[in-house]
Design a protein around this nucleic acid. Sequence first.
DNA 1: GTCTATACGACGATAGAC
DNA 2: GTCTATCGTCGTATAGAC
Lengths: 199, 199
Amino acid sequence: MLNANRDIQRTPAHTRSQVLTHALNLFTGQGYFNTSVHDIAHASKVSVGSIYHHFKDKEGIARTLYEELLTQMVEEITDILRNHTTAHSRCRAITELLFEITVVTPETMEFIIYAKHREFLPGEFPICSSKPFVMMREIVAEGMETGEIHTMDPTVATACLFGGSIRLITGYLDGVLEKRLPEYLEETWTCGWRAVAVV
Amino acid sequence: MLNANRDIQRTPAHTRSQVLTHALNLFTGQGYFNTSVHDIAHASKVSVGSIYHHFKDKEGIARTLYEELLTQMVEEITDILRNHTTAHSRCRAITELLFEITVVTPETMEFIIYAKHREFLPGEFPICSSKPFVMMREIVAEGMETGEIHTMDPTVATACLFGGSIRLITGYLDGVLEKRLPEYLEETWTCGWRAVAVV
DNA sequence: GTCTATACGACGATAGAC
DNA sequence: GTCTATCGTCGTATAGAC
């Protein structure tokens, strides 16, 4: 996953990362159920047998992807928590992070925020119960205690603060935006913050 | 068992509506690809042959559902346009409508707002390009001309105005809200409007 | 660990009787 | 129009050689 573009190797680690990379592209590009293990094998230039050696089954590939991408996102939010102190600054940084991930690795964002995980990952909790989203709500809740954000239901505040950004991101992933995504950042952030900020 | 079968209506219209109703439930409950035509036949108490008499194929069922539900929503928004004049009043009414549809017929809202249509309806435009969403953006744009809403990119304004509500709705559909959905209406609307309103 | 070949079940769709 | 029975295909997963 991390060392995606290297010379063609046949090491186990390389096989594994190739499979994950191409599975992510196929799952987001044409959907999990429209993607066969054979498709993944072909795109990864790896045999079906190798795939089943590294992963229990097709679902296992998706689950691994889901967990690794979420873990990565948690780390990035943790960094933001370290480098920013106010709720305003932290939420702004998270918004920038979401936009950046979307532009740099749209498949990642699509798989995290836009896929219907419950349809192919039985037992998995909804994405909004996942760690990154919980962290975002905690940041908002703390912002209420410091008086930066209106005292209200934290779920509502988080939804309204980030809801606009998420709409823009899904619009970008759907290819329906007229301008490039970053051009929407300032205005979207201003609106989102205005929705919840104490004047 | 056999007696029960006598009570079942066998008119074409009844067959068609039964299939659509149960297909919607199954598609939203377990996903389009996890639902077989046999499942639909069983749930609808109709034979597979009858289903294929009324619909070209499985995709045709989903496409019919999609079109009918969107048409219904367009009519409801049209009603709102008739009965309300200001952008404030119209957007508020639309927010209430979205919440009400979600509570009364969650499958409808899930199928419209939450399904990944492009994965099973090839050629279909993304939901945010659909008529209801376009109408919402037009209402917002008019609100800018009348001075009710900040002059800004209409896409951003619409995303921020309704983004919070949509997040709450998806949270409800995912079953992760602590309170019942209507209890969030006032606060969510207030936040959304504050995000874009001219003071 | 990686590969090819294959078993086997599931599902979409059709045929043809009533 | 509705039904049952069946066909053909596709895709997951495994077996077993290298």
